[in-house]
Design a protein around this nucleic acid. Structure first.
Ligand SMILES: [Mn+2]
Ligand SMILES: [Mn+2]
Ligand SMILES: [Zn+2]
Ligand SMILES: [Zn+2]
Lengths: 139, 139
DNA sequence: AACAAGTTTGTAACGATTACAATCACTCGC
DNA sequence: GCGAGTGATTGTAATCGTTACAAACTTGTT
């Protein structure tokens, strides 16, 4: 599924900027923040504005093509993978890592009252990544 | 367990302000934000500063007496219940509700690489609470 | 009383995000 | 092709939660 197809599939009008942002997210699984995306695209789109990156990411999130992660209290991070998976953030180097989930377990785990309508689920882990853990142990 | 005891138990020196903040959190399970806490305590502690509320909550979080929730992208919310449970936020009225978890299921659910050291886990749900869901259906 | 260490306070700075108004790009009827 | 209309983009200014900082205050000690 290409970026243009994804946009069409959920009724978002394509524009060079929107395609560029979504393309970037689909090709980089690094959970970038707005500045990462802006810095990466700016060389190729010299007139691109940070505001457009913000607006586009909001639009894509509302359309369900992208998810916004609130795992990092400093700023939002974005992910074009909207299938169920968890995230781990390293409190030392701030890297965000995907954690696969055993799908069935989620229902077994949470006792959600039937009358509430869940629209999204996010599972976050915080701690030290292997590299930073190792570095900490040698200090 | 009283607020003063909790502070002592994890080596945080007590002060009237710290006790007041922790007391408030232990008595109100509403997941308040900084302004909620400040507004609630200010009548009784007229010299209390917002900065002190911020500082205290950071200290309490670092000491493990309190957890900081990043479920609401607008601002941090705080919870004196640090036992494992999930949170649901209503995207309409912003209420945060506790969701009990079946403890054992967490390990079964996430495939965490053994080399990473998890320090905290947060499971967030977003959607419409019963009241707002009902209101939405009648509109 | 003088001092040291730690805490609180008020204000200023910071930084991420949003609001807004002007400009731009594209489509459609002429 | 041409101009109006619609929506997208841009740059700047404003907002707002949070943090930095330095001065004033507390508390305990000599
Ligand atoms: Mn991911
Ligand atoms: Mn809670
Ligand atoms: Zn790391
Ligand atoms: Zn609600």
């Amino acid at each position: 599924m290409t970026a243009i197809e994804s946009l069409a599939a959920c009724g978002v009008k394509a524009s060079p900027q929107r395609v560029a942002v979504l393309d970037y997210l689909m090709e980089h699984h690094t959970h970038p923040n707005v500045d990462d995306i802006y810095a990466a695209l700016h060389p190729d789109y010299p007139t691109l504005s940070r505001t457009t990156v913000y607006n586009t990411l909001r639009l894509l999130t509302e359309s369900g093509v992208v998810q916004t992660l609130s795992i990092d209290e400093r700023n939002a991070h974005y992910d074009a993978d909207v299938t169920l998976h968890a995230h781990f953030i390293c409190t030392a180097c701030r890297t965000i890592i995907d954690i696969p989930l055993r799908e069935a377990a989620l229902d077994a785990m949470a006792e959600l009252p039937r009358e509430m309508q869940v629209e999204s689920t996010q599972l976050y882990f915080r701690g030290l990544c292997p590299a930073c853990k190792c570095r900490a142990e040698h200090a």
